[in-house]
Design a protein around this nucleic acid. Structure first.
Length: 615
DNA sequence: GCCGTTTTCGGCCCGACTGTTTTCAGTCG
């Protein structure tokens, strides 16, 4: 497995953190490492390919020294410089950075002055009152630290889908190449596209060697509450598990690969997340996949329904009462035998989907192929890495009909946000590019007309509630998204006023990432969401489902509530480079978890229909 | 450690907010 861009980027970022925690002269270098880390993350090419071609120094912010270090990392998977720095700092000190308001400087100070080595010792220091004796600390910071620790504990043991899913897919790839493995899939939270998961679950079907086949029923299959009962690799007894253990013994390849794969996945993840690979005999695969995918609530609903029909439901499939039964050949079959329409994994949460399936009123969920354009993308006019031309190319490659350029506005200075003048200049550039595209003729993918770049903006909602650009300019734009990027911790009332004020502005089409949360890193702003939804439903202002796996904002349950209140949505990536356009899958999955249909999502529309909606 | 010249060192995306200060450091976006 090659060292990927993400991993290189993460090591460089960690080096930067360590340098700043250690302080002193070397800390100056940190900014250089961070810049390089960002560049590598934004690369569309594989950093390993660049290394092979000797082109690493073409990456902005990478000179000779960093090129050598990145090369070392790619070739050996390790970086001696990183290991040397890490050895100087207790490992728990870097965990302190996960607290809002604690940066590397503060972490270094806590460690050197108070001997704080990890989150636990920090909590002790906060509770004993020794924290506020530190320069720059007072009662408020102490309270913020304790609150941050509490928030961290609430989400401990869970990792964001954006980390879990790639790890799960890598594991699936490894396993599917093993002889004897007939089918393999993620299950559990990853398959349901939960925003965070506490374990990575994989189900793999394994060929049964001669002589081991036997009836599946009557063996006391595990129930939904204790999935371990059904043949978790290397797990405890039970006859299904025992049979699996027998198979595994005959297939040393599998156990070996499993061990390697599991270690690798664990190592690639920050926290000690569980990785459970369930090996099942091939003919039990479909039933097991169903069993290990649904939430406990979903599985319990199914079991209740089975019981009410005089049936039982186990990991193999639907069983006739007291009798044996053949294992399910597909998930569809299980649902059908229970008199239910097929329930897609994203809905298997125990939120009314079983009842809906029974009554034939499951939604026709929006799909990735319904999406005709991305309404929130950044370019190199602000902090994105794509040129306008590059954006067109990347969006066309995804089969889109249109894409909205929505760069930041002036107040977000660090992003090079656009003022009125530059925004209008960008609009001219977009129109010029559209003229050229029109001459080229219709985009082949759809034939409905030439690909169109739309002129938009992500205008900042300022701390006082005003928008960062005058109405006159906003009126000129095709699509205006209004978002909060500063003062995210204002009291709920003020935050709500800011967002409601923006939603009421006639030029604002979309409220971007409404709660401002960052999964695993930043809590959502205090906000009266229902109040906001009410206004959006009335004014027709769209709510964004930000597809970046760091955000997923709105989240599934909030979006479902908003839909029930009459709101409509956009699903957009907020991409800052070409690869991030691919995050759309996360946004669509979140929309599906919110029970959204194509009609609920503005960017499933043709350009003409979209324009009509926005008017 | 990078970069871009002022070619061999000195600056380093920028402004606001926060909690702490009594003039500012650190964090954040």
């Amino acid at each position: 497995m090659r060292t990927g861009n993400e991993e290189v980027s993460r090591v460089l970022e960690t080096v930067a953190d360590l340098l700043e925690v250690l302080g002193g002269e070397e800390a100056r270098k940190a900014a250089a490492y961070r810049r390089a880390a960002r560049s590598v993350r934004a690369l569309d090419e594989d950093v390993a390919d660049l290394h092979e071609a000797g082109r690493l120094t073409e990456i902005p912010g990478v000179g000779g020294a960093l090129a050598r270090k990145i090369g070392e990392l790619i070739e050996s998977g390790r970086l001696a410089y990183h290991e040397r720095l890490a050895a100087e700092v207790p490992p728990g000190v870097l965990d302190l950075l996960r607290l809002p308001g604690v940066g590397p400087r503060t972490a270094g100070l806590l460690w050197r002055r108070l001997g704080v080595e990890d989150l636990e010792t920090l909590e002790e220091a906060a509770r004993s009152g020794s924290l506020r004796k530190l320069p720059g600390f007072g009662p408020k910071k102490e309270a913020a630290v304790l609150e941050g620790l509490a928030a961290l504990r609430r989400r401990s043991g869970r990792i964001p889908l954006g980390e879990a899913r790639p790890a799960a897919l890598a594991l699936v790839d490894l396993l599917s190449a093993v002889p004897g493995v007939t089918a393999v899939s993620p299950a559990g939270g990853v398959r349901r596209w939960c925003e965070t998961v506490e374990s990575i679950d994989i189900v793999a079907g394994v060929e049964e060697p001669e002589g081991l086949q036997g009836p599946a029923a009557g063996n006391g299959p595990g129930d939904a509450r204790s999935p371990e009962g059904a043949g978790r690799a290397g797990g405890p007894g039970g006859s299904v598990a025992a049979r699996v253990a027998g198979i595994v013994r005959d297939l040393p390849d599998v156990t070996e690969v499993l061990q390697v794969a599991r270690d690798r996945v664990r190592a690639s993840l920050r926290s000690g997340v569980e990785v459970d690979v369930r090996l099942v005999p091939a003919r039990l695969y479909a039933g097991a996949l169903r069993h290990f995918t649904g939430s406990r609530e979903h599985n319990e609903s199914l079991q209740k329904r089975a019981a009410s029909m005089g049936l039982a439901l186990g990991p193999e499939g639907v069983l006739e009462k007291g009798g044996r039964s053949r294992p399910a050949r597909s998930e569809e079959e299980v649902y059908s035998e229970l008199g239910l329409a097929y329930i897609p994994p994203e809905l298997r949460e125990g939120r009314g989907e079983v009842e809906a399936a029974a009554e034939g009123r499951l939604p026709r969920l929006v799909e990735l192929s319904d999406i005709r354009g991305d309404l929130h993308v950044h370019t190199d006019w602000s902090d994105g890495h794509l040129s306008l031309e590059g954006l067109v190319e990347a969006a066309r490659a995804r089969g889109y009909e249109y894409v909205v350029v929505s760069d930041h506005s002036r107040s977000l200075a660090v992003t090079g946000g656009l003022d009125e003048e530059r925004l209008l200049a960008q609009k001219d550039a977009i129109e010029e590019l559209n003229r050229r595209l029109a001459e080229e003729g219709p985009a082949e993918e759809h034939g409905a007309g030439p690909f169109r770049l739309l002129a938009g903006v992500e205008v900042d909602i300022l701390p006082d509630g005003r928008l960062d650009l005058p109405d006159g300019v906003l009126a000129e734009m095709d699509v205006v998204t209004a978002s909060v990027h500063s003062a995210l911790r204002q009291p709920g009332e003020r935050m709500t006023e800011r967002l409601v004020g923006a939603a009421k502005n006639e030029h604002v089409d979309v409220i971007g990432h409404p709660t401002g949360r960052l999964l695993g890193r930043r809590e959502p702003s205090a906000l009266d969401l229902e109040g906001l939804f009410e206004v959006c439903a009335r004014t027709g202002t769209l709510l964004e489902i930000n597809a970046s796996p760091e955000r997923l904002d709105l989240k599934d349950t909030d979006a479902r509530l908003a839909k029930d209140m009459g709101c409509r949505f956009t699903v957009s990536t907020d991409a800052h480079h070409a690869r991030a356009l691919g995050d759309m899958v996360y946004g669509v999955a979140t929309a599906r978890r919110a029970w959204l249909e194509p009609g609920d999502v503005a960017n499933t529309r043709s350009l003409a229909d979209l324009r009509r909606l926005l008017r």
